[in-house]
Amino acid sequence: MDQINLKINKGDIFGVIGFSGAGKSTLLRTVNLLETPTSGKVLVDGVDLTTYSAQELREKKKEIGMIFQHFNLLNSKTVFENVAMPLLLSKVPKNEIRQRVMEVLRYIGLEDRSNAYIHQLSGGQKQRVGIARALVTNPKILLCDEPTSALDPQTTKSILNLLKKVNVEYNITILLITHEMEVIREICNKVAVMENGRVIETGNVLEIFSNPKEKTTKNFVQSVVRDEIPEFIIKMLQDDNPSKRIFKLKFIGENVGQSIVSEVAKKFKVDVNVLFGNIIELQEIPFGNLIIEIKGDHRECERAIQYIRLKDIQIEEVAANGSELRNYSQRNFGNLIYG
């Protein structure tokens, strides 16, 4: 890893995405010094962890919970004993342990399985136990190492919801690594993209999704927001009427995308057909693209396009070969979010 400089704020759900071998796992392990950096600092609450003694570090680690892709639970112990382990290590009195563990198990919804052994649980339940074990010491930070990569999509969703709930209700800062953009989309507010041991792009999730700069980032974004032109539209352009004008609109936020279509149709003497749409939710804000056809007199069409452009919506014309797009938008789309 080389020249990595990340700042994670309190309350963030910060996602680090990259292909395997990108160094994200090492990065995560540097935060609780499971990996010691050869140079550089790891500041947690403004204090450099690399200056800590082994004993101080062990104490500090109790404020940093961690969950793992393969859960790393003790098969020889029950759910209760697994969750109790961090408290046991700190020599917390027995009755206090009992109370706290049951409290956390209730929170994650597994209090009725407290006497079960790990092999009797499903993958999702195992990860819940992992989360409970991480939460039992009331940490300020939760490190998540590919928390859902071993789970099916439905279970993934429930685990991500739980993490989000933990973040909001306990105000725990979450640092999460993953290779799935879907995970980032679902819960993160900030993201860093890693490649070859470097952070190649970082920022607000909305910003990165709407305006990815690096190729790898674009690939990741496309895995969630499919913005290539569908085959049937390219066919339509090639076969039917070559004078057909098809546009792609990218938009963020309520109303913007949907209402612009009817607005334009009313304001100008043009017909607008929605051909295709792809809308996802990013931090509770709709985000996506629409492919529309604008029919009408050339001048009216141009005026309509200008109008859309002035509304700060990115609009591109789809060419007959589908790949070349004429960009009508001069302004950087990324500014739209905050501007």
Binding site: N32, F68, L89
Partner: peptide
């Protein structure tokens, strides 16, 4: 014993002796 178990133990701030006693041997 899975290395992940030791990693989890270290992340919890277990001492080497605790790792042997409470993680390695039981597992």
């Amino acid at each position: 014993v899975d290395d992940g178990i030791i990693e989890a133990a270290k992340a919890m701030g277990a001492t080497p002796f605790q790792i042997i006693r409470k993680f390695l041997i039981p597992e």
